[in-house]
C-alpha cells in the first residue's frame, strides 16, 4: 500500500514537473524528436536494404552445364551427388531440348535457327538450375560442384553476385553502425539537455535530500519524467514513420527502380513494428538521460 501510494505520487510529480518546467521539457522533447526522426530514417533504409539483399540472395541461380555425352545414368548419379552438397537448396533439371524451346520463346530470331536443330545437332547442353541457401559461400559450393564428373561449366553470374554480396555487406554494416551510434549520441545529448533542465532544480534535489528523501525516491520521479519526455518525443517521429512510409510505398508502387527484385517491405505490420521500436528507443533514451543527469547531484 505504501509502495503503491509512493509510486502514484512519483507519476503525479513527474507529470507535474514536465508541465511546470515546460520550456526545458520542450528542449528535451525536441531533442528526442529530431534524433528519433533520423533514427527512423536509418532504420527504414537499413531494413529495406536488408530486404533487397535477401531477395537478391534468394534469386541467385547456379547453372551447371553437363558435357554433351552424359548418359541418363550419369545424370542420375550427378543429381544424387548434388543433393549431397549441403548449401544447395533447390534444383531443377533442364534438358537441352527444353533449353532450346525456351530460347525460341524468348526471341523470334532464334526460332528458325532452333527449328533446324535435331537431337544430335542441338549445340545446347543439359543443365541443372540450382538455388543456394547461403549466397556468401557460393564460391565454395561451386568448387565442390566442379569436382563432380561430366561437368562442363558452372555459371552463376559470378562478378555481379560477388559485387552485390560485398556492397550489401558494406551497406548493412554502415546502417547498423549509424543506428547504434545515433542512439548512443542521442542518449548523451538528451542526458545533457536534461542535465540543463535538472540544473535549474538543483535546490529542489538538495532540499529533498535534506529532508530525508532516499536517493532512489529522488531518482525515480526524474526517471519517470525522462520516460514521459521520451514518449512525448517519439510521437512525431512515429507519425512521420507511419504516414511517410506508407506514402513512399504507394508512390513507388512497392518497388524501387521498377525492378521486381528491389521490393520495398510491405507497410503492414512493418510501420507498427518500426513505431514500437522508436517508442522503445525514446523511452529508454529518456530514462537513461534523466538517470545520468540526476546521478551527479546525489553525490556526497
Amino acid at each position: 500500500m505504501k509502495g503503491i501510494r509512493a509510486l502514484g505520487r512519483y507519476f503525479r510529480d513527474a507529470s507535474k514537473s514536465v508541465v511546470r518546467n515546460f520550456s526545458l521539457s520542450l528542449a528535451s522533447i525536441s531533442c528526442i524528436t529530431i534524433t528519433l526522426i533520423v533514427v527512423s530514417i536509418s532504420i527504414v533504409i537499413s531494413l529495406n536494404v536488408e530486404n533487397f539483399a535477401e531477395s537478391i540472395r534468394k534469386d541467385v541461380t547456379v547453372v551447371v552445364f553437363l558435357d554433351n555425352d552424359t548418359t541418363k545414368e550419369e545424370i542420375k548419379q550427378i543429381e544424387e551427388d548434388l543433393k549431397k552438397i549441403e548449401n544447395i537448396d533447390k534444383m531443377e533439371f533442364k534438358t537441352k531440348q527444353e533449353a532450346a524451346d525456351e530460347a525460341k520463346e524468348d526471341n523470334e530470331i532464334f526460332e528458325t535457327v532452333v527449328d533446324g536443330w535435331t537431337e544430335d545437332t542441338n549445340p545446347l547442353l543439359d543443365s541443372f538450375m540450382l538455388k543456394v541457401k547461403n549466397v556468401e559461400i557460393i564460391k565454395d559450393t561451386v568448387k565442390e560442384i566442379k569436382k563432380l564428373p561430366k561437368i562442363n561449366t558452372v555459371n552463376y553470374g559470378e562478378d555481379i553476385v560477388d559485387q552485390l554480396v560485398t556492397v550489401f555487406k558494406v551497406i548493412e554494416k554502415v546502417c547498423i553502425i549509424a543506428v547504434i551510434s545515433l542512439i548512443v549520441v542521442t542518449a548523451f545529448l538528451i542526458a545533457n539537455t536534461i542535465k540543463l533542465a535538472i540544473f535549474s532544480r538543483k535546490t529542489e534535489i538538495e532540499i529533498m535530500r535534506l529532508v530525508g528523501a532516499s536517493n532512489i525516491s529522488i531518482k525515480v520521479p526524474f526517471i519517470i519524467e525522462g520516460l514521459f519526455l521520451g514518449i512525448i518525443g517519439s510521437v512525431i517521429p512515429i507519425i512521420i514513420t507511419i504516414y511517410g512510409y506508407i506514402t513512399i510505398y504507394n508512390y513507388f508502387g512497392g518497388k524501387i527502380l521498377s525492378s521486381s527484385l528491389a521490393k520495398l517491405i510491405e507497410p503492414y505490420p512493418f510501420v507498427y513494428l518500426a513505431s514500437l521500436l522508436l517508442l522503445g528507443i525514446g523511452m529508454l533514451v529518456g530514462m537513461f538521460g534523466s538517470w545520468r543527469a540526476v546521478r551527479k547531484y546525489l553525490k556526497i
Binding site: L210, V211, G212, N215, I216, K299
Partner: peptide, 9 residues
Amino acid sequence: NRKVYILRR
C-alpha cells in the same frame, strides 16, 4: 552516500 537519508530523517 545512498544511506545519508537515514541520518537526515
